[in-house]
Computed example of a mutant assay.
Amino acid sequence: MTLVVFALVDNVHLLDLAGPAQVFDTAGYRLAYVADRPQVTSAQGLPVVAARELPALGVDDLVVVPGWRGETDLSERLLARLRRHHEAGGVVASVCAGARALGAAGLLDGRRCTTHHDLQDDLARRHPGATVVRDVLFTVDDRVITSAGIASGVDLALHVVATRHGPARAAQVAREMVVYARRNGAEPQASAMLRHRNHLDDTVHQVQDLIDTRFTEPLPLSRLAAHAGVSERTLTRLFTRATGLTPLRYQQALRVEHAEHLIGHGTTVEAAARESGFDDARMLRRLRSRFRPVPPG
């Protein structure tokens, strides 16, 4: 059974810790907590008991550094354990200010990363060799996973579950936690992806993963069905039952939302149509009246 170890410091944010811990616990992982002393106090005043030494770790195990308030940082002893675990092939992750610890351990140089929007400038200044990605929920780069902070730690953990056990298991965990949807890291504002991911059909999730990343391209039903290993008729039936849309309508919804985003930032309708995968603006104009994108947030 996979072990998830949370490396803690004083003033740790409770949700940074509790959100991912709840996800991994619900998914059946073992949890452990480590710090430089037997007890740390959260930023919200709750004491948290922890061991001083990390347990033995395998390559399938995960070390997570939740964020904290203030200038506290992990000790060099714990930073060294982070480095060794990653060098041995393991995964390390951070939530919010926890990215600073990954940077101090030398794990962000040459990699994409993110953190809470209030801390992005500081992270970029501290670690100029890193590529700080803004306006995303989480990033994944060579077994280093970073999230934007607070509730996005849940998204990070669900992503790990989806990667290791399939999107259906991640969706099941999300439903057990009463989390409305599994949000994708690189597309925090793509509301169609959120609205139509609240199901447990693994075949449909696989097809949605393909459409989500290639929605501007022609995606004939035959290609989608082959990707899922089912017939076109079966895929249409499963997809419609799970999402309320056909695969084509789902792709159109993503295209329209992308075009709306571009138009909202000053792009002409014609240019937005082309960049979103439409042959011309006429189809976009027709579809804009059918799809009502949900405002971000």
Rank of each mutant, 00 (worst) to 15 (best):
Thr163Asp: 13
Thr146Val: 09
Gly98Tyr: 01
His199Arg: 03
His86Gln: 14
Val5Ser: 06
Thr72Met: 15
Leu287Ala: 01
Thr114Gln: 10
Thr131Phe: 06
Val49Asp: 02
Glu87Gln: 12
Asp61His: 14
Leu194Thr: 06
Ala51Arg: 05
His227Ala: 14
Glu270Thr: 13
His265Met: 06
Thr234Trp: 04
Gln251Phe: 04
Val133Thr: 12
Gln39Arg: 13
Arg81Val: 00
Thr146Asp: 07
Gly244Ser: 03
Thr163Phe: 06
Ala7Arg: 03
Arg223Trp: 10
Ala281Pro: 02
Leu235Phe: 11
Ala281Val: 05
Pro20Thr: 07
Arg290Trp: 14
Ser222Glu: 12
Arg223Met: 12
Glu270Phe: 09
Asp10Arg: 05
Ala162Tyr: 03
Arg183Pro: 00
Gln206Ala: 15
Leu284Gln: 07
Pro55His: 13
Glu275Leu: 15
Ala192Gly: 14
Arg52Leu: 09
Gln172Trp: 15
Ser152Asp: 03
Val65Gln: 08
His199Asn: 02
Glu187Cys: 01
Gln189Thr: 14
Ala186Val: 11
Asp209Met: 10
Phe6Gln: 08
Arg30His: 13
Leu15Trp: 12
Thr72Cys: 15
Ser152Leu: 01
Ala56Arg: 14
His196Ile: 09
Gly266Trp: 06
Val4Asp: 08
Gly266Ser: 02
Leu262Gln: 14
Val204Asp: 13
Arg100Gln: 11
His261Asn: 12
Arg175Leu: 11
Arg241Leu: 15
Leu79Ala: 01
Asp16Leu: 03
Arg249Lys: 13
Val40Asn: 02
Val230Leu: 02
Arg125Gln: 08
Ala171Pro: 08
Val133Gln: 08
Pro55Gln: 12
Leu210Ser: 10
Glu275Lys: 15
Arg183Asn: 00
Glu76Asp: 11
Met283Ile: 09
Thr26Glu: 15
Asn198Trp: 14
Arg274Lys: 13
His85Ser: 07
Val230Pro: 03
Arg100Val: 09
Pro295Ile: 09
Ala226Val: 07
Val178Met: 08
His196Asp: 09
Ala99Val: 03
Gly244Gln: 03
Tyr180Ser: 11
Leu235Arg: 08
Arg126Tyr: 01
Leu262His: 09
Thr163Gly: 10
Leu17Ile: 06
Asp10Ile: 02
His196Gly: 07
Val63Lys: 02
Arg81Thr: 04
Ala101Phe: 02
Val91Lys: 04
Ala253Asn: 10
Glu176Phe: 11
Gly153Ile: 06
Thr72Val: 15
Gln252Val: 10
His205Gln: 10
Pro128Lys: 13
Gln208Leu: 15
Gly149His: 02
Arg81Pro: 00
Cys113Arg: 11
Ala105Gln: 00
Pro293Phe: 06
Asp135Arg: 09
Leu8Phe: 07
Ala181Pro: 11
Val49Met: 07
Pro293Met: 05
Leu245Cys: 15
Ala273Asp: 06
Gln39His: 04
Leu238Val: 06
Leu158Arg: 08
Pro247Asp: 05
Gln44Trp: 05
Ala281Gly: 05
Ala271Leu: 13
Ala259Phe: 15
Ala35Gln: 00
Val48Ser: 02
Val48Met: 12
Arg223Asp: 14
Gly185Asp: 02
Thr243Arg: 05
Thr26His: 10
Leu123Ile: 07
Asp60Gln: 13
Arg214Glu: 14
Thr267Glu: 15
His199Thr: 08
Val63Thr: 07
Gly70Ala: 00
